[in-house]
């Protein structure tokens, strides 16, 4: 077991015993990832913040319920909780699953980058984000988990509640669809340019 996994297991045990500081460390480890995961499912940053907050509060409540079940996989628990909360959000408020592309106001503070590099990267991000938002939710989700959060297929399969094989196929298909979407957009741009 590597140090990071061991540390997370330890944090999980402490948090399940009601240690709020341990849960604070879990928050530090996961907040960016969970926020990002939610951000790609909703249409704006504010909603992503609200739902992300709910994920951590509910996860704590779940871990510390009187008749709690033992949690063995923190990663899966947090992402699954995020998925359920987003589903609830759309169900209760009867909102439509996002379709719009909110321009990104992010690219936080990378001081080492030159201004031009930053602009170029920001534009790349907006570009890829726009294409990702055109995909089906399950494709977008699996690509984020795999390539942005860099989770293993095994970890992803636990979060999505699918077999390893099915997860692998899903990633492959998602990549292909993304590629087609990008190609299609390039073709239509070049046609318009002619």
């Amino acid at each position: 077991m590597n140090a990071s996994i061991f540390k997370q297991k330890l944090l999980l045990v402490r948090a399940q015993n009601g240690d709020s500081e341990a849960f604070g460390e879990i928050y530090d480890l996961y907040v960016d990832k969970i926020y990002r995961f939610i951000f790609f499912k909703v249409s704006n940053h504010e909603t992503a913040e609200d739902l992300c907050a709910e994920v951590f509060l509910k996860t704590w409540q779940y871990m510390n319920e009187p008749d709690k079940r033992e949690v063995s996989n923190l990663n899966a628990l947090l992402y699954q909780s995020a998925r359920n909360i987003v589903i609830d959000y759309y169900r209760t408020s009867q909102r439509e699953i996002l379709a719009d592309t909110e321009s990104l106001k992010l690219v936080e503070d990378s001081r080492q980058q030159s201004f031009l590099e930053k602009v170029a990267i920001s534009s790349e991000i907006e570009n890829i984000e726009a294409h990702l938002r055109k995909l089906k939710d399950e494709f977008r989700e699996v690509l984020i988990l795999k390539f942005v959060d860099e989770l293993s297929n095994k970890e992803i399969s636990k979060i999505l509640d699918k077999s390893n094989g099915a997860t692998r196929v899903l990633i492959h298909r998602a990549l292909k669809v993304l590629k087609d979407t990008i190609d299609e957009s390039k073709n239509s741009q070049s046609k318009n340019g002619q």
């Binding site: 500081e21 849960f23 907040v31 913040e49 951590f56 936080e108 991000i125 984000e129 942005v148």
Partner: peptide, 28 residues
């Protein structure tokens, strides 16, 4: 294409929200 997707890890919540919510979470 994968490298481009990886750039998305620069998407982060606002720092002030992250910090203030952490404090509230811990206190609650």
């Amino acid at each position: 294409m994968v490298n481009k997707i990886k750039l998305l890890n620069q998407i982060q919540p606002r720092k002030e929200w992250k910090d203030s919510f952490r404090d509230i979470l811990i206190s609650e």
